[in-house]
Design a protein around this nucleic acid. Structure first.
Lengths: 336, 336
DNA sequence: CTGAAAGCGCTTACAG
DNA sequence: CTGAAAGCGCTTACAG
């Protein structure tokens, strides 16, 4: 692509192109960034410059452009993990939607470590992001403060905060519906009407609390009380969930509300490790295409990632008053 | 964090800090970027500057730093998708390893679209990446050319190319082993000794060819010939795989070699949609924690992402002669 | 031990 | 229709 007779070992700049084209760097710049009609540069010159840029394999130096311009057009996202369908889908939608809006997306994954979250947020600010989407952060408010000090908009996604607008799933309604389904399927399949187990998440985190509230409400409807011992919340770790499951005494005719696909990995492994696996049913808040087909599964509550993200982008485009939390309905996917 | 009596609406620069500290921007710069001992700045001044930077909520402007420095310390990765365990793990390992090496990782996901791949590569070059890891690209050689014209090192990951070093799984050996296992399990469970089906991937792509070679070799060992009709390669789309599966006439006693978890989604759905699902077994080249527990699964060939990436980083650190392809062994994970 | 100054590659008023 | 020049926020020889 690059001319062989090119001597310089460095990448061409607009000055190099200007020299070749016999024009000024200003002209080259405006042709290359699309403002040339406004500057009333002749179509002929514009075309010649474009051709030369192509020939020289020119690529604009984005850091230089960002430094000069008032807006960076970079949008950041921090996300706990990539390795499950929910966060994977969030990352993909974020990238696509950012590009559709002419923004450059930068994502960084923070492993659910509060320190990494903060460090990543700082790094994003250094990168001059115009806006930061904070996904599933342990302490979104600290990050929101950091951002507001730097006059960068922050949006919380998945886990809400109190110092920036938030977009989350409607966890209460989703959990209510999922719990109803599990209860009714257990009754239908086994004739039992026992309170379900609730497995996964952290008692302190908002999503878990909301889901537990929906879970409890569905039990109340059914005239059941949930014993405290039925709830196992050891965070977002399949291993810890698995280790603690022995305490639960899940027997034939049981039903289980699994609070994430991460916890589900623990549940499935536990089931498999039992010498005599109990006849039971589970439902899961979160969707996975393979887990959907597991024999004991009665259905999965799929979060509406597309709507969550388009809502987040709306909040970015037209910032609301205060720090509202918008709830997005989930979609129940019955066992296929 | 920021002082309330601060008037300026813009973010502080080293000049602002210098003024507050009563020193020069040079001093501030070298304190903030760690070169102050070399410049023999007093510990006292260094401390004061650090404190003021903290108080003012200072964050270095990375684009400006990148523009000035000779090395950007940014490393790029393009990747087809985030939403499966393999690519998710690649993205996570890449980020972690880049950070361990003091590099800033930027990932972008290209949806298996050749045009997006090229566009993303150009964007990475504009971002002044020092190196680009090209993962699963349809046409890695075009990207390698683009990079070499810009004097940026490229490394191919997952799919090999001929114009840059490549790191791939040992697809032949992995497929050989996986095929042996499926054949022997089908024999043990059903007493049949029929050639297996091969489902997923693209006939033109290197990984599929290599795996097909291992698949065929295992059949030869077993004294079996593989009918051409047994192979279904409709690319990386669960829907297309599913749509074409009717042609296969998979019956009781069959065995299936599934070439990716993406194809596996199609296979599992097909199985489920059958009025009388055949008694069959499958194995899959690629690992997924839930698919691992599906009843017909005999085992999954897990690619060694950690070793693949540390090998890629080694190639970056000590560039080899030419464009070698390094093969990383896979690990077979039998059905739990 | 420290500062003034040049310059990284752009963009954009400003002045023709 | 076009160019010279300033300046974005840093880093780093260079000169004390």
């Amino acid at each position: 692509m690059a001319d062989d007779d090119e001597i310089t070992a460095k990448r061409p700049t607009i000055y190099d192109l200007a020299q070749i084209a016999g024009t000024s760097a200003s002209a080259v710049s405006s042709v290359l960034n699309g403002t040339w009609k406004k500057r009333r540069i002749s179509a002929r010159l514009a075309e010649r410059i474009s051709r030369i840029a192509e020939e020289q394999g020119y690529a604009v130096n984005l850091p230089a452009r960002m430094l000069r311009r008032d807006r960076s057009r970079v949008i950041g996202m921090i996300i706990p993990k990539y390795d499950n369908r929910y966060f994977g889908a969030i990352a993909e939608h974020f990238e696509t939607m950012a590009r559709e809006r002419g923004l450059f997306p930068v994502i960084t994954c923070t492993q659910r470590e509060p320190d990494l979250e903060l460090e990543a947020a700082r790094e994003m600010l250094s990168y001059q992001v115009e806006c930061l989407i904070v996904t599933g952060a342990t302490d979104p408010d600290r990050i929101a403060d950091l951002c507001s000090a730097a006059r960068v908009r922050a949006i919380n996604l998945d886990l809400p905060g109190s110092r920036a607008p938030s977009v989350v799933s409607d966890n209460f309604s989703g959990a209510l519906e999922l719990t109803r389904v599990i209860l009714s399927r257990v009754r239908a399949d086994f004739g039992t009407a026992l309170p379900l187990y609730f497995i996964g998440g952290r008692a302190q985190d908002n999503n878990t609390r909301e889901r537990l509230r929906g879970f409890t409400a569905a039990h109340v409807e059914a005239g059941l009380a949930v014993p405290e011992d039925n709830c196992l919340m050891r965070g977002y770790s399949a291993a810890k969930t698995l280790a603690a499951m022995a305490d639960l005494k899940i027997a034939d005719g049981s039903g289980v509300f699994v609070n994430s696909t991460i916890a589900l990995e623990g549940v499935v492994r536990w089931l498999h490790d039992q010498p005599n696996p109990p006849q039971m049913r589970f439902g899961c808040f979160d969707w996975d295409p393979f887990a959907a087909f597991l024999p004991q599964n009665v259905g999965m509550m799929q979060q509406d990632v597309a709507t969550m993200l388009s809502t987040a982008f709306q909040l970015i485009e037209t910032p609301p008053e205060g720090a509202p939390t918008l709830q997005i309905p989930c979609r129940f996917r019955p066992r296929p």
